Amino acid sequence: MISLVGKYAYVKQENLVEFYKSLNVPEAFVDKLIPKINSLKEFKVDGYKVTITGNYEATYILDKEVDETNEYNYTLKSIAKMEGNKLIVTSRTPEQPNTTLKRVYESNDRELIITMSCQKTPVIAKYYYRRVLP
Rank of each mutant, 00 (worst) to 15 (best):
V50S: 00
V50H: 00
V50G: 00
T51I: 13
T51L: 14
I52W: 00
I52A: 04
T53I: 06
T53F: 05
T53Q: 07
G54F: 01
G54E: 01
G54Y: 06
N55Q: 15
N55L: 10
Y56P: 02
Y56S: 08
Y56K: 06
Y56M: 04
E57F: 01
E57Y: 05
E57R: 04
E57M: 07
E57C: 07
A58R: 09
T59H: 10
T59C: 14
T59K: 10
T59V: 13
Y60H: 11
Y60A: 01
I61A: 09
I61Y: 12
I61H: 11
L62E: 14
L62C: 14
L62P: 10
D63C: 10
K64Q: 15
K64A: 10
K64C: 11
E65Q: 15
E65V: 15
E65W: 14
V66I: 15
V66D: 13
V66M: 15
D67K: 14
D67G: 09
E68W: 01
T69H: 08
T69S: 08
T69A: 05
T69E: 11
N70D: 07
N70P: 01
E71Q: 00
Y72G: 02
Y72L: 09
N73T: 04
N73E: 09
N73V: 05
Y74V: 10
T75M: 03
L76T: 03
L76M: 15
K77Y: 11
K77R: 15
K77N: 11
K77D: 08
K77G: 08
I79C: 11
I79H: 03
I79V: 14
I79A: 04
A80Q: 01
A80H: 00
K81A: 04
M82Y: 03
M82H: 02
M82V: 09
E83L: 02
E83I: 08
E83R: 05
G84I: 04
